[in-house]
């Protein structure tokens, strides 16, 4: 909970009093590595804020192949808006790639926080626009960027995940095969190695 409180206070000047009032809406939960946090077709009413560990959102195609939409390491949010805001079945899976501690955040918490703290409203809007901006970039990357450009963008966004997850998962996020990812890394090494 302290990690989330520090995060909030860093990004929007929420007071101690306001946090104490809002805290009743929050719940801390831990997911051991390998736990399925959300199933496709399931329902959820909460976002997860990751205090420690690593979550991943992904879909499975008809051949059973995984397509990773997002990783959520420390200080990231992850959730299925289709389910939270539109009360429809979740469209992707979320699982824990490491032992993970999260704060569960309800829509009601976000509404209350915006009511009592105008700065939080501004921050939440910025977060939403940042999310949309990121999605636009990601669509463009998947349509137009080379494998190397996608990888270079990935290591800027998630610098330490190359040490925490498999090449297969990185490839599934980039929309390329693991063999293509190997070729990209080999070419970079040829160009950059000491």
């Amino acid at each position: 909970m302290q990690v989330f409180k520090d995060y909030l206070q860093q990004h929007s000047p929420i007071t101690e009093e306001q946090f104490q009032f809002l805290k009743k809406e929050l719940k801390v939960k831990t997911y051991p590595k390998g736990t399925m946090v959300l199933h496709e077709g399931g329902t959820t009413q909460v976002f997860c804020f990751v205090c420690s560990g690593l979550l991943r959102a992904y879909t499975l195609d008809n051949q059973g192949k995984e397509h990773t939409l997002q990783f959520a390491p420390e200080n990231w949010w992850i959730g299925d808006r289709n389910s939270i805001y539109f009360h429809e079945p979740a469209v992707f899976y979320i699982d824990a790639l490491e032992d993970t501690e999260v704060v569960l955040i309800t829509k009601h918490f976000l509404e209350e926080a915006q009511t009592i703290c105008p700065d939080f409203r501004k921050y939440n809007e910025r977060l939403l626009h940042n999310n949309i901006r990121h999605m636009q970039c990601r669509i463009n990357q998947l349509l137009a960027a080379t494998a190397e450009e996608r990888y270079l963008d990935f290591i800027q966004l998630y610098p330490n995940l190359t040490l925490r997850i498999s090449q297969i998962m990185i490839a599934s996020y980039l929309g390329i095969t693991p063999e293509s990812l190997s070729r990209v890394r080999k070419a970079l090494a040829k160009k950059n190695s000491y």
């Binding site: 610098p159 190359t162 040490l163 040829k190 190695s193 000491y194």
Partner: peptide
Amino acid sequence: IREAIMDFNLGKFGYLE
């Protein structure tokens, strides 16, 4: 540390199959 991670990501340590 941040520089070391980026150097690794950019292939500066070389490549190994």
